[in-house]
Every structure is written in C-alpha cells, then in structure tokens.
Design a protein around this nucleic acid. Structure first.
Lengths: 205, 205
DNA sequence: TTTTGATAATTTTGTTAAAATAGTCAGTTT
DNA sequence: AAACTGACTATTTTAACAAAATTATCAAAA
C-alpha cells in the first residue's frame, strides 16, 4: 500500500471523498467523471492519473467504506461479554452502515445480477472478516462453557449470516430482492434481533 | 371454480398440461402460444377461448403446481410428531418441489424484479398457507409444553421462513440472488436442515 | 358451444445515427 | 521526474425507426 508520496496520498483521498459524495447523492450511473473532476476543479484526465477507470474508483471508495465498517465492528467485538451481544453488535453496526450509505448502493440495486468482480471481492472480504470475528466469539463462548462445544464455528456463523441476510420485509411487499427498501430497514433490523435471540438460545445447552 | 362443462374442464386441463411441459422445458419467454396450440393440434385462437392471455395461462399452471405443493405439505404436516419434524417436512417438500420444477421458474430468474402481480399473489398465497400450517404446529407444540409459550406464532414462522429463504450458497459464489443455481440446491437444503435444528432448540426452554 | 383462419395490435429485434461519457496521450507546468 | 491538462479517440447510451415475431381479437364456420 501507499507507494506514492504524501502529497499523492492526500490528493487521492480528496478524490475519494469527492467521488464518495457524488456516488452517495446520485449513484454510480448518474455520476460522471467530469463532475467529480469539476467538484475538485481538476481535469478529468487527472482522475485517470490516480485511478485506472471509473469502476475502480467506485471500488476504491467502497473499499474505504468497508475498512471503516470493519474497524468499527472490530472495536465493538473486542469488548463483548456474551455471544448474543456479539451478534447484536454485528447487526447494529451493519444496520448503521447500510442506513448511512444507503444511496451509495444504488449501484447494487441497479446491477443486481452482474456486479463487477472487484465488488464481489470486497463483499467476500467483508464476509470473511465477519466470519473470523464472529467465529472467534463463538469459540470463546464455547470455551467458557456457555454454549455447546462447536466443532466448526465458521459453519455456524456462515449459516447465521445468510439467515440474517434472508430476513426481509414480510408478505405485503413480498417483492423483495437482494436490496431492501429504505423504509423497511428498521423493520428488518427488529426481525434480525429476534432471530439472533432465538439462534443463540439454540446454541445453548 | 369450474363453472363450465366437464368437456371444457378436460380440455382446459389438457392445455394446462401442454403449457406446463413447454414452460418446464423452455421457460416462459421461449414458449409461444402457437407452439402450445401446435402440441395439441389446436388453433392458437382456442387457447384464448380458454385463457384470457399468456401470462394468465402461465399463472394458471403455477396455481395448479402451488395447489399440488400445498396438498403434499398438508398431508405431511397432518402427522408430525414434533415441531422439528414439521419444519423439516416443509423444507423437504419445498426442496422436492423446486428440484422437480426448476426450469419452470426460469421466468422468475429472468424477470426477477418485476414479476406480474398475479404471480406475487400466488407466492403470497403459498406463504400464507405455510404460515397457517406451521403456526398451528407451533401452537400445538406450545400447548404440549415442549417449547416456550409463544404469543405470536405467525411472527416466529414468518421469521423462520425468511431466514430459510436467505440461506444461500456460501462465499465462493457469493453472487446469489433470489433464485439459486440448480447445482447448489442440495447444499442449501443441508444448511436449512441445520438452521431448523438450531432454531427449534432456540424455541425450547 | 366450440373451433378456426384471417387479421389487428403489440412487443421484440435489429439498424442506424447522434449524443453523452469513458478513457488516452502528447505535451505543458511545476 | 512527477503532477497535471486540453484536445483527441473509443465506447456506451439513447432515440428513432422499420421489420419480424408474437400476442391477441373477431367474424364466421363446424
């Protein structure tokens, strides 16, 4: 990382920030490279000096957000006292993250099926980081004897994360896909808390 | 239902069957009304005598399938001995149903976002029927004192069904949407069994 | 009442041209 | 040399249109 000069890193950050604001307000497809350059009073060509193309600029922003998200998650998980608390932290942190950056993910809602591979890589990275953190939490809880011994914590975490992912808004607007509507986020959040509650009890003796 | 003559009903059934075969092999968009008519050596116009339009023909087939699915589910759920068994029945029956009719749902995979309302109505009907059956199972189990008393069984069933719905194939092919790939169905099925196992335990004392 | 051939209406597909935007590069500035 | 730009090219998106395929209708026949 950061093989360039400090000056370069600072400019890179500025571009990232300007791009983030644009993507957050207008989404990927309604943001042009010209506009981002204009916001910074730079030429478009300079953007290409710092980033190979538009999608990799978007990806870089996404990567930054992911880093911030994981940092926050890690901080919270450093001081959990029981497993449920750990899972709840995950849900809450993710909820806040989604709410805050909702419009940024327009890109996801539109492309749905065929997101670029780089995006999937980041999603996978996040998923794996969560796996590590939460698996450790399970392990610890098992060692303390508060839940049944688990031979494969990763499998359990994986299952829970996917189950949580599936918790979408109920019958009325059954028409759900991978990305929920903004109005439903709180309802989803509540359901997830309930699921975690039941799930954790299911892991106990 | 069936306000027409027996003859009419028989013909209707034949059309439904021919349409089902076509949809199963080629999916909705690659099936033309001419082809269905051709399979039965009828004129296309006759299809419109029996069904108002193509999408309602598809819907009628779907409705029939849904009926068969729910019948099977109801039969199994009539003789469950504990709650886990009931949930497992649901998973198994649904799994068989999806495997058998996989190609029929091409329509779903393609349209994804904007399925016609009639389709959503059927999905909602199925969901509600499942809710009734499984809620009753929970109620019964609670009365027998095998799980904690539940003030709102529907909420629990709803949660489980959505959680199960979210159980998709893991990290590698993270690229999943509402409809899983055929090769992954068995893996998903196994995960769902595990989830039900934990979930049911979580409902116990 | 059931069925059809002929025909109308609509949707899909393919073509093209224009506009918008992404992306490149020779050359200038610091 | 590193940071930067204006002018350029390449690619993608959009709109307009015609042709083809398909859905849907209907008057008349069986």
């Amino acid at each position: 990382m950061s093989s360039g000069s400090d000056q370069q890193d600072i400019k890179r950050e500025k571009i990232l920030e300007a791009a983030y604001q644009r993507f957050l307000h207008y989404g990927y497809s309604k943001t042009t490279m010209n506009e981002i350059a204009g916001d910074l009073s730079l030429s478009k060509a300079l953007l290409y000096y710092y980033f190979p193309d538009k999608s990799q600029l978007y990806t870089a922003v996404m990567r930054k957000l992911a880093g911030e998200y994981l940092d926050k998650l890690q901080n919270k998980l450093n001081k959990f006292t029981d497993l449920k608390e750990a899972f709840v932290s995950q849900i809450n942190t993710q909820h806040d993250f989604i709410v805050k950056n909702y419009n940024f993910f327009d890109f996801f809602r539109l492309n749905e099926q065929n997101l670029p591979d780089t995006i999937w890589e980041i999603i996978t990275e996040i998923h794996q980081a969560e796996m590590v953190l939460l698996s450790a939490a399970i392990q610890l809880e098992a060692e303390k004897g508060r839940i049944k011994p688990v031979n494969n914590p990763g499998e359990i975490v994986d299952l829970l994360l996917y189950a949580l992912h599936g918790v979408r808004v109920s019958a009325v607007s059954h028409k759900k896909v991978m990305f929920p509507q903004k109005e439903h986020l709180d309802e989803i959040h509540a359901k997830r808390l309930l699921l975690v509650d039941i799930f954790v009890k299911g892991l106990m003796y």
